[in-house]
Amino acid sequence: MIFPGATLGMLGGGQLGRMFTMAAQTMGYHVIVLDPDQDSPAGIIANSHICAAYDDESALSDLASQCDAISTEFENIPATTLAFLEQRTVVHPASQALAKTQNRNTEKNFIRSQNIATVPFVSIYQKSDLEKASEHIQFPAILKVATFGYDGKGQIVCSDLPAAYEAFEQLGQKECVLEQRIDLACEISVVLARSDVGTITPFPVAENVHVNGILHSTMVPSHAPDALQQSAIEKASQIAEGLGYVGTLAVEFFISQQGDVIANEIAPRPHNSGHYTLDACPTSQFEQQVRMLCGLPAGDVSLQSPVVMINLLGDVWGDSQPHWSAVLEQPNSKLHLYGKKAARPGRKMGHFTVLANDTDTAMQQAETVFSALQAD
C-alpha cells in the first residue's frame, strides 16, 4: 500500500485530473501533474506541474523519479508513454489495458471477444470498404473516426451510402467505424473500481441523456429495470477483468427497445456520468481512483440520495457569466466549476448536482435551475 505523504503522478491536466488531484490532496498525498498546457485546470492546483508533452522522455523520467505511482485522466495518453513509465514506477491503468481502448475498432473487437454484444459495426479503412459495409449495416448509420473522437466530435450520421462517402471525405479519410443506429430505450453507464487483486466495486448505475453527442444529464438511480442494470454491472465487470484493469473505469451501454444491453464504449478513467458521486456517495469516483492506485481498499459507494447531474458547457456563458444565483440559492444543489479560463461552445466548464427525495423531483429542479442559469 502507498500511504498519505507519498507523491502521485497524474498524466493529464483537465477537469478529471483536477478532481483526482483534489481528492488525493484531501487524503494527504502530494500530486505532480504532467500536461503541456501551462494553464491546465489540474496543473494550477497541483503541488507541482511539469509542463511538457506526453511523449517527452526527459519529462517522463523526471515525473517517474518523483512519484510512487502514476495514473491517467484520459485514454488518449500514448500507450508507449505508460510502457515507458512502467519500467520506472507503479502505473495504473497499465499500457496494455489502455491500448485496447484507444481505437474504436480494437475496442469493439475486444468487447466482442468477451462475448458481450456491441451494435453491428464494420471497420472502414478506405472508401471502398463503405460499399461492402452497406451489405451488413442498414442506414441510417453513424460513421465515427477510430481514434481521438469524443463528445460527439469525429462522428457523422449518414442517411445512405452516398452520405457515408461524403462523411468519410469530411473525416479526412481516416480509419473509421460504421455503426448501425438502433432504437434506444435509454442509455446507462457503469462506473466501477477494480483493485490490484481483482476486487470489483461498482457504483450505482447512472442513466444518461446526450445532446449533440455530449452528455447533458445523469440521473441516479436509473429508471431502467433492475435486471438490466445488474446485467450491465456484470458486463462492465467482465470487461474490467478482461483488461486486467486496475483503477476507476466506466462502460457506457445502450438499452434497446427490445431490452438488450449493448456495450457502447469503454472509458479507462473516471467518467463524466460519475460526477454525481462527488455529492451523492460517501466515496467519489476520484477518491476511488486514488485508492486503487495506492493499493488501498475500496471506499463505500452506496447512494446516499437520489441525484441528477447537469453538465455546464461554454454555451451557457454566452458573452457574460451565468446567473450563478440560480444554483447557489438552492440548498440542495452543488456547483462544481473546473477552473478553465475561456468558455467556448461545447467545452465542459463545470457541472451541478441536485439532491432530492426522488429522481423525478431532482430532474425537474435541475432543468429549472439550468434554464435560469443561462446567460442572456
Rank of each mutant, 00 (worst) to 15 (best):
Q230E: 14
S113L: 07
Q257G: 15
L192H: 04
I182T: 14
G259H: 08
A64E: 08
D376I: 09
A117H: 12
M10A: 06
S333F: 03
E73I: 02
H92R: 15
V369G: 05
V33E: 01
E187N: 10
L296E: 12
N311G: 10
G12R: 02
A375T: 13
H210W: 08
A6S: 15
I188E: 03
I45V: 15
G14V: 03
S61G: 14
A117S: 14
V307H: 01
M27T: 04
T101H: 03
M349G: 04
D376V: 12
A240W: 03
V157Q: 13
I188K: 03
H30M: 07
N264C: 14
T277H: 05
V211Q: 14
N311K: 04
D151Q: 09
D39V: 04
E73T: 03
V251L: 09
N109W: 00
T199M: 09
F20K: 00
L178E: 06
G247Q: 10
I200D: 06
D39P: 00
N109K: 13
C281Q: 06
E175H: 11
Y276K: 08
L34F: 03
T353Y: 08
N212E: 15
G152I: 05
V91D: 04
L184A: 11
Q374I: 15
S159F: 06
T277D: 09
I50M: 01
M349P: 09
L293V: 08
Q66T: 00
T199V: 14
S113K: 12
P140C: 13
I142H: 02
Q102A: 06
Q364R: 13
E187V: 04
D360N: 13
Q173C: 14
T218Q: 07
A97I: 01
T106W: 00
S237R: 09
V211T: 13
E166G: 00
P221E: 07
I214C: 08
D360E: 15
E73P: 00
N105Q: 10
V327E: 02
G244S: 09
Q114V: 00
E187P: 08
G198N: 13
L293I: 08
N47H: 15
V261S: 10
A227E: 14
G13N: 08
D260M: 06
Q15T: 05
L312A: 07
C67P: 03
L161F: 12
V157N: 00
L178M: 12
I70E: 07
F370V: 01
S222H: 05
Q285Y: 04
D183R: 13
A117C: 12
D151Y: 03
G17L: 08
R269V: 04
Q285E: 15
A79L: 01
T26W: 00
L335M: 12
A232C: 10
G152T: 07
P36D: 06
P36Q: 10
S195F: 11
H49C: 07
D129P: 05
H223T: 15
F254D: 02
P162I: 12
V145T: 15
S371P: 00
L143F: 09
K108G: 01
P345G: 11
G43C: 04
Q38V: 15
Q38A: 15
